[in-house]
Each structure stands twice: as structure tokens, then as C-alpha cells.
Design a protein around this nucleic acid. Structure first.
Length: 230
DNA sequence: GATTGATCATGC
DNA sequence: GCATGATCAATC
């Protein structure tokens, strides 16, 4: 895809085929090349711009902006995720999925959860480049449109149900990132002073750090490996 | 080197 | 504070 046609197609993708074609057209570009053609400044590091790569790809692919708890392409049923990988194809970070609800969760089913919704169909965009490589020099990899296999869906559901049961039983303080086979619960907050309500051990209300669901590295590594190395 | 808890920017 | 986008960095 030439740069000219890229700019002509900067609108929202009309369908899945168009979205995939755009994503594939970005493979091989450096983030600097993409940023320059979008008129976006390139940070020297990501310390103060942790979401820069994700936002750059959102802009390039025409994802809906905003802070709604929805998929990036609701009309296509697709969630967009950039994932940093090393030269072996191994993810360098866990993958944030969504904030965990801590109150009013009785009766919440997996099928109706944000985690299930967002993971039902993900467009993965691998970003090749370790921390020692400046953001602008990192490379965009081949995209992968993924839907969980039956086995993957079972693992995700089991972890989600186990974690949510503990939360509903007032045991959130006992949960750490080691719980879960493929999904983990960790703090997701502005800082350690940002607090939100949760259910306490005695069924009372306590203040605690907001938490988020993250995919563990081994899970995303296997997911990428199955597609790219079989 | 991998992991887990902490943190950064932004809009509303 | 909560939602989006995540990575940082102290500790194991």
C-alpha cells in the first residue's frame, strides 16, 4: 500500500476485510514512519507516553476514540490490541483487558462480562522492539485476527469466574497476580492513592485499589506462536 | 530475566 | 474516579 492510498483510506473501515487490509498494509512500517505520515510527534521513550503506540495504531486504523467500555470497532465486533514482542516473538508485557467491577457484581455472568466481550475477537498488532530500542525505531508486525478456541475460552472463563467469586466473597485482598492460569488481576490506577469501593471480608465496604484484568504472557505467547510459527 | 505491584497521559 | 491507551521499575 502506498502512502497515498493510505491517506485516502483514513476513514473508518467499512468492514472486516477492509480493516484487515489496512492492518496488513502497516506491517513492515516503523512507528516513526507511521507517526510522521500521521503528523504525530515521536517520544524519545514511553515513560510519560505509555499509551502512545496503542493510540498511534488506533489513529492509523480508524478506531473509535473515547473512553467507553466498548470494543474499538463495535460495528465489526473487533477489539484492537498492540502487543510488544521481542525478536523471538515473545510478548514483553502482559496485556490489559478491562477494569474489574468490584461492586454490584452478584449474578454477573461470564457471557455478559467486559472481559468476554472484548476477547471475543481481537485484532493483535505485534510491535517488534525491546525497551532498548527507541519507540520510533520499533517495527509494526503482521496482524493477527484472533478468536479464542474452545480450550482458550474455557481457561479464560475459569479464571474469570474464580477471580470474580473471590471478589464477591470479600476476598479481594487475598488476590495477587499469581492467581489464574491465563488471566490475572492486578492494580490498574493512577497511583497507589487512588481508591475505590469493594466488598470487605465481613461483607462491609472497604476502599481498595482499582483492579484490572490482564492476559498473562504465556497465554499471549502461545496465541501468537500458533499463528506465526506452525 | 521474569514477575508483580505501581505508575503515566488524557477526557469527561 | 473511571474509562481509554498501556509500560515502568522494584523485587523476586
Amino acid at each position: 500500500m502506498s502512502h497515498h492510498t493510505f491517506f485516502q483510506s483514513m476513514s473508518r473501515p467499512a468492514n472486516l476485510v477492509e480493516l484487515l487490509a489496512r492492518a496488513e498494509g502497516l506491517a513492515g512500517w516503523s512507528l516513526r514512519e507511521l507517526a510522521e505520515h500521521l503528523g504525530v510527534a515521536v517520544p524519545e521513550n514511553l515513560r510519560r507516553d505509555k499509551g502512545w503506540i496503542g493510540q498511534l495504531l488506533e489513529l492509523a486504523l480508524g478506531a473509535s476514540a473515547g473512553s467507553k467500555p466498548e470494543q474499538d470497532f463495535p460495528e465489526l465486533g473487533v477489539e484492537l490490541k498492540t502487543i510488544p514482542i521481542d525478536r523471538q516473538g515473545k510478548p514483553l508485557e502482559t496485556t490489559f483487558i478491562s477494569v474489574a467491577p468490584l461492586m454490584g457484581i452478584s449474578g454477573l455472568r461470564w457471557e455478559d462480562s467486559n472481559v468476554c466481550n472484548k476477547l471475543s475477537c481481537v485484532l493483535w498488532i505485534p510491535i517488534l522492539g525491546e525497551r532498548s530500542i527507541a519507540p520510533g525505531e520499533r517495527m509494526i508486525g503482521q496482524p493477527l485476527l484472533w478468536r479464542p478456541s474452545a480450550q482458550e475460552a474455557t481457561l479464560l472463563r475459569q479464571d474469570w469466574e474464580e477471580i470474580m467469586e473471590l471478589i464477591s466473597l470479600g476476598q479481594i485482598q487475598t488476590i495477587n497476580a499469581r492467581l489464574g492460569q491465563v488471566l490475572q488481576l492486578r492494580p490498574k490506577a493512577a497511583n497507589s492513592k487512588a481508591l475505590t469501593q469493594a466488598i470487605g471480608p465481613n461483607g462491609d465496604i472497604i476502599m481498595t485499589l482499582p483492579r484490572g484484568f490482564y492476559l498473562k504472557i504465556d497465554f499471549t505467547r502461545a496465541l501468537l506462536a500458533q499463528h506465526f510459527m506452525l
